[in-house]
């Protein structure tokens, strides 16, 4: 991979994103909308939840209400609104990240193909666009992190921000993979909305998780790692190394898959000379 080509691609991707008014509006509006929904609908009363990534023997305090089925992870009591705000922050950032990534890889695909014919390598395109996306998502994560203290008195804000960043990374990789796999934008948007809603916006909710069955399914989903990092960081001082590694594993695996699929899609037929 040639660095100058990746940088050139990054510059173009930043210009394209900065001119995409809908995308920029989403970056700001989606987290605000999600947080507003939390404030309006979620009470402050304490609830008991289970921390999937913290072992049971590390129990924080006895639950206020019996949990069925019996938890296998540590439990904690925390205000429902605070818990909801943390997992909703992951969902909002995840949606923004996946949609921006999808847009960068799927939109103007024919022009991208033309660029490959001119000599740009698919790896340079993916690397450059990912770098541009990282810049935008760093700003989006910063905005969400700035809003979060209004709703949560986090035990370790730095770890929560790490969780948010990992959530953005996992979902950006997912968006790139969907963008590489599908040509039609409607299919891509549906797949992004489905995953983010189901995974980050529903199944990773610690309140739901406490009573869920077949939890291995939930733990195997991409948003599990980032959600655990953020929730554990917000309410405890337990280590988050395992959940961080899980998030990075998902990110790397989906990025690699996106690169392979994108390279195959952009393949140029060989000519003799």
């Amino acid at each position: 991979m040639r660095l100058s080509h990746a940088i050139s691609e990054m510059g173009a991707a930043l210009r394209r994103t900065s001119r995409n008014r809908l995308a920029l509006a989403l970056v700001l509006a989606l987290p605000l909308f999600f947080f507003a929904a939390v404030v309006v609908t979620t009470p402050r009363r304490p609830v008991t939840v289970e921390l999937a990534s913290v072992p049971e023997e590390e129990m924080v305090m006895p639950p206020l209400i019996p949990i069925h089925p019996l938890p296998r992870g540590a439990v904690l009591d925390a205000p429902q609104r605070a818990i909801a705000a943390v997992f909703v922050a992951i969902a909002a950032l995840g949606a923004v990240a996946a949609l921006l990534a999808l847009d960068l890889l799927q939109k103007d695909a024919a022009a991208t193909r033309r660029l490959v014919l001119c000599g740009r390598r698919p790896s340079e395109i993916v690397a450059g666009r990912l770098a541009a996306l990282s810049c935008v998502l760093a700003i989006a994560t910063g905005c969400v992190a700035a809003l979060l203290p209004l709703l949560v008195q986090a035990e370790r804000l730095g770890v929560v921000v790490l969780g948010l960043g990992l959530g953005a990374a996992v979902h950006a990789a997912y968006g790139l993979l969907v963008g590489a796999l599908f040509r039609r934008d409607l299919v891509g948007i549906l797949l992004v909305v489905l995953l983010v809603n189901l995974d980050a916006g529903w199944l990773q909710n610690p309140i739901y998780y406490a009573g869920a069955q077949h939890r291995f399914v939930i733990a195997a989903l991409p948003a599990h790692g980032p959600a655990q990092v953020a929730v554990v960081g917000a309410f405890t001082d337990y280590p988050v190394a395992g959940a961080t590694l899980l998030s990075l594993g998902w990110t790397v695996a989906m990025l690699a898959a996106a690169l392979v699929v994108f390279s195959l899609r952009m393949r140029v037929a060989r000519c003799g000379r």
Binding site: S4, H5, S8, E9, A12, R15, R16, R19, N20, K107, D108, A110, A111, R113, R114, L115, L117, C118, G119, R120
Partner: peptide, 25 residues
């Protein structure tokens, strides 16, 4: 190669296209 359907990046200017494609070449 000049394709039949115009293949451009909607949110880049002509000059930015030259820069991008010139870089690729």
């Amino acid at each position: 190669y000049s394709p039949q359907q115009v293949e451009l990046f909607d949110t880049l200017t002509a000059r930015e296209h030259f820069r991008l494609f010139g870089g690729a070449l």
